[in-house]
């Protein structure tokens, strides 16, 4: 007999779209630790992290049907959705987002597009991915790591990074692009090595 634990993340997400609460529970069991780690790192507050993450699972329950049939990258979809929701929380606290949070806003800015990119990453083989991304990150320069840290984990916009580092906006954009491109190269090389 096939149990819930044997389903892939994407299969579980498709089952959630069909209102399968057991599938959502399985996704919660798989992802809650990783998502809580990211949420707490970005919001730096236990209570806010807990509240935001609860909302993330509610969004997954409501909008899992946005995850395209046949898509096989639930990991990226869930992580991107979670980070978008955290960024929204952060920016609303700073009053940099003033438009009301409603369904159409959520569909546009929080729900990531259902991608056809098949990276086949799931939490089952996370250790392999962890090793690869750590090695790829270690090969970056300190400046590149710092700019990724500010943009990804601190959730700063390019304008905010430019103000914080006192450098022109164009330089920030160039540095970000270079850092991500190098990270991608390193990551892909790690896969071949």
């Amino acid at each position: 007999m096939v149990t819930e634990k044997e389903f892939t993340d994407s299969e579980l997400l498709h089952k959630v779209a069909q209102r399968d609460s057991k599938a959502l529970e399985s996704l919660y069991n798989r992802y809650s630790a990783l998502l809580f780690t990211l949420t707490k790192r970005m919001l730096a507050d236990n209570q806010k992290a807990e509240e935001t993450l609860a909302n993330v699972f509610l969004i997954i329950w409501k909008k899992a049907s946005f995850f395209k049939t046949g898509s096989n990258n639930a990991y990226s979809w869930i992580l991107t959705l979670t980070r978008n929701k955290i960024l929204d929380t952060l920016r609303r606290e700073k009053n940099t987002i003033s438009i009301p949070y409603d369904d159409s806003y959520e569909d546009k800015f929080i729900i990531p597009p259902s991608l056809s990119y098949d990276d086949k990453v799931s939490l089952n083989d996370i250790d392999k991915s962890k090793e690869k991304i750590t090695a790829a990150m270690n090969k970056l320069t300190d400046a590149q790591r710092y700019v990724i840290e500010l943009a990804y984990f601190e959730g700063l916009t390019e304008n905010e990074i430019a103000t914080q580092l006192n450098i022109p906006l164009l330089t920030v954009q160039l540095k970000l692009k270079t850092a991500i491109a190098s990270l991608m190269d390193n990551f892909n090389k790690e896969g071949r090595e």
Partner: peptide, 8 residues
Amino acid sequence: SLISKLPL
């Protein structure tokens, strides 16, 4: 897909 691995 790449940046979603950063939380690891």
